[in-house]
């Protein structure tokens, strides 16, 4: 190995080190610490108590109906909102790709939700649907006194709507990037062969876009799985609309029960790992670098 190669290596490591440390300091170390805490009884309101309790905290979480309800809620919200986002995002991407005029206008308007603080968007939708301030109940075909947040599935529908609104742009832009890599010649050839627009979409567009779609799905699914802001503002978990992140927050911050809360944190981490492995191994999503 020449000195040049050696020094290049050293420089590479040196340049990466600060970023690597900054990233690990607040992820790897805390997750390790969370595992340690989750095996102990730690309740800051009872400073004199404490000690190792083994897997007891995990037992308490996994045997609680609340955990499973909240896990169901989170998975339900993720699956529904990501599915809608995918369809809508694909439609917007196609529209932008085949724009006749006003492409810039679409891109502009689509970027607005991206720029808005999630909490602000959540407040806006909440005020819009609230029976006392909102304009929604004033619209035709909607009961004037409908209490959208008073029932589980109507509350879910507003939450999903807010999430879809906020994150579809990101999905659309990722898909648009995938679309632009497809050679137009393929479409012309298919047209000559008499393929319908739908056939062109399913036979050419979709297969060629599979990598881009999978990457977009992976990111959005994991992102949706951590849903916190919107629910916190809109219902704060009432009407059984709690997500696992809210559940963790409640144990950690409201109850200061760090032991139990850390067990929830670790379980959420494991869920995320499972989802990521599922996408990468089963569906074959590749690192974005590979798809470029």
């Amino acid at each position: 190995m020449s000195d040049r190669v050696k020094s290049e290596r050293r420089l590479g490591w040196l340049l990466c080190a600060p970023a690597a440390i900054a990233m690990l300091a607040v992820t790897a170390y805390p997750i390790g610490y969370a595992i340690v805490l989750s095996l102990q009884q730690v309740d800051l309101r009872f400073p004199d108590e404490g000690g190792w309790v083994g897997l007891q905290n995990y037992g308490a979480v996994l045997s609680s109906g609340l955990w499973w309800t909240d896990l169901f809620n989170t998975v339900f919200l993720s699956v529904i909102s990501v599915s809608i986002e995918l369809c809508l995002g694909m439609a917007i991407a196609l529209v932008m790709h085949r724009a006749i005029f006003g492409r810039g206008l679409v891109r502009t308007s689509v970027l607005i939700p991206y720029g808005i603080v999630t909490v602000v968007a959540a407040f806006s939708w909440q005020f819009a649907f609230a029976p006392d301030t909102g304009f929604v109940n004033h619209l035709p075909f909607i009961a004037d006194d409908k209490d959208w947040f008073g029932e589980r599935f109507s509350a879910f529908s507003v939450i999903i709507m807010a999430e879809v609104w906020k994150t579809t742009p990101f999905m659309a832009l990722l898909l648009l990037a995938g679309l632009t890599t497809i050679d137009d010649g393929l479409y012309d050839a298919a047209k000559v062969d008499g393929a319908s627009a739908w056939q062109r979409f399913t036979r050419i567009t979709l297969p060629l876009m599979k990598p881009a779609i999978l990457v977009a799905l992976l990111f959005r699914t994991l992102d949706a799985f951590r849903i916190f802001d919107t629910i916190f503002i809109m219902t704060n978990g009432a009407q059984d609309t709690q997500s696992v992140s809210i559940l963790g927050y409640q144990q950690l911050i409201s109850r200061l029960n760090l032991g139990l809360g850390s067990a929830v944190s670790v379980l959420i981490f494991i869920c995320v790992l499972v989802i990521a492995v599922f996408f990468v191994r089963v569906l074959g999503a590749r690192q974005p670098e590979g798809s470029r």
Partner: peptide, 13 residues
């Protein structure tokens, strides 16, 4: 992809 809630408790402590 890391879930931030998993770090909130340890970071707080």
């Amino acid at each position: 992809m890391f879930p931030p809630i998993s770090t909130v408790g340890p970071l707080f402590d």
